[in-house]
Amino acid sequence: MLPFILKRLGLALLVAFTVSFISFSLLFLSGDPAAALAGETASGEDIEAIRRVYGFDRPMLVQYGEWLFSAIRGDFGESYYFKLPVASLIAERLQVTMLLGVCGITFALLTAVPLGVAAAIRPNSLIDRVALFLSVAGQAMPSFWFGLILIVVFAIQLGLLPPSGAATWRHFIMPTIVLGYYAMPAIMRLTRAGMLDVLNSDFIRTARAKGAGEGRVLFKHALRNAIIPVVSLAAVQMGFMLGGSIVVESVFALHGAGFLAWESIARNDLPTVQALILVFSMFYIVFTFLADVLNAWLDPRMRSS
């Protein structure tokens, strides 16, 4: 198990390094950063002055090295717009996003996995149809629309939940449902397909022939094998939730990292955008790594290969 973890860790670091270079390069791919910073009315001299102040006149690799070295120490420079250190800005916004992401994926897994298992036990039964309907609806419904409907019904009509903000845990209920419901259909369908496949396998017949009860057959013998692809999918979904919850954060006025990314792009706040891209990518890398380790624990065949 340990060699496997070390190998995956090395791979993750390599990917992280590559991603950091790409996210740094983005600065130069979107045109001359000095000109963009100076604004439309700036003269050529102003642009040159800005170029020198920000160090854009040095070779790109030197700039990258310096940026990476500071980034590792947690220094992402200063936001052009907020005039605050990017690191503290992101740290503050990430709290909301991470809380929302963890709640969202938990909600998605807690609804999708039991529903997928129930649907697989009795294919084409009522519960299978209901699960299919829920997943199709979840996939077809845009998040912003679903969010607005929830606000209209639960906040305005019934007055049960606050419509927006992040002050208390009750503010997170609706955003969690919207975000989680977005991830739920894929997880549910994958769980169902995996369970259907595994339940027809020979080793499940062996488990029954041993005299194992149905619960033991389903959860000890079948689910452990069926859940393996779900783990990988959930890791990607989790990364997506942390980086891409912009829509949900906007609808519910939660000022998280996704919202910050949207603002910063609109304002050409390059250090913030760079740092956010790097942070979001790191989340993907970390979750993929964790999913690999979890899968290797679930399936011994992965450890040796």
């Binding site: 396998s201 020979d202 080793f203 022939a209 013998h221 094998n225 679930l298 399936d299």
Partner: peptide, 12 residues
């Protein structure tokens, strides 16, 4: 005992 020893044991 079954015909398929390759798949009759739980891989996990």
């Amino acid at each position: 005992i079954f015909q398929e020893p390759m798949t009759s044991l739980n891989p996990a």
